[in-house]
Nucleic acid binder design. Structure first.
Lengths: 146, 146
DNA sequence: GGGTAATAGTTGATTTTGTAACCAACAAGC
DNA sequence: GCTTGTTGGTTACAAAATCAACTATTACCC
């Protein structure tokens, strides 16, 4: 395993970002998967509804940059488990408003608490200033701010 | 879309890291996909061989934290396209050494150049010091250093 | 040396994702 | 009000990822 080229893969940002994202999602993923049998898109939808209270599939998709088919399926799964309700918008009958049921709220509160402590644990790798800078840089890379 | 909970998803590191990783991989992905019909694992294997010259599937898997079935199939695809050769290790006939063919080397050099300029473009969002700090923090989150 | 466990890598079945086509409701122009 | 285009969301089919089981070979160890 002698180097024949000095390009450093371990510093290549797309690679590095993916490794960090994967590693830092692992333990959290384990929790929502084991505890609620959820997929990645499921908890993201759950969190959006938990945070914003009432949204349409489209709004969630735009906010989290998730394709509409993935949202559609996650909403189905969550509706099947009675974690959310769908109600048609009467002024535009194409779209429907999603809201968490009490069971959904409970799941959200549980996972939200996990997420908060999980995030603190990750941030504890750094000083407060570093962590803030990291989030800012990530938001910029994610195109969430300019 | 009024907030009913003050948890900030957009600052939750696993979420943020994934968004940044996805966004910052997009254009590069387009290139290896369009230009060589490669998948994510394919270019990672290609890069490992391009950088280190000769590795076994297992070594690549450990280095990039990719599951062996994914590696196995990526190696198959790359071998089918004559981008690499496999030769059995004669002292341990279970494993085989992978090496790029000239065609594989050419593809690697091409993509490596793209990767380098792509990385610079991403890093240009920040000052030199910030970028270095970012990489360091990501390596730490990825468990690549302690 | 013979039996058992471990390892490198492959294969097959199942689940999840991605892509395109689709349906129903709405909007705009005429 | 009819046609054409757009939009929110679902569905069908193909591609890819995951997980478990499998083969072949080597290591362990009594």
């Amino acid at each position: 395993m002698t180097k024949t080229d000095d390009f450093d893969l371990r510093n290549f940002l797309p690679f590095l970002l993916n490794q960090a994202a994967e590693e830092s999602s692992l333990a959290f993923q384990q929790i929502y998967k084991d505890r609620y049998g959820m997929l990645r898109t499921d908890w993201r939808v759950l969190f959006h509804l938990g945070i914003y209270g009432r949204m349409t599939a489209k709004e969630i998709g735009e906010s989290a940059r998730i394709h509409k088919t993935k949202i559609s399926r996650a909403v189905q799964r969550l509706a099947d488990r009675r974690f959310l309700t769908r109600t048609r918008d009467e002024t535009d009958r194409r779209s429907e408003h999603l809201m968490l049921t009490p069971a959904g709220e409970a799941a959200y509160r549980d996972l939200q608490a996990v997420a908060e402590s999980y995030d603190s644990r990750l941030a504890a790798h750094f000083t407060t200033g570093e962590a803030a800078l990291l989030r800012m840089m990530l938001r910029r890379l994610a195109g969430m701010e300019r």
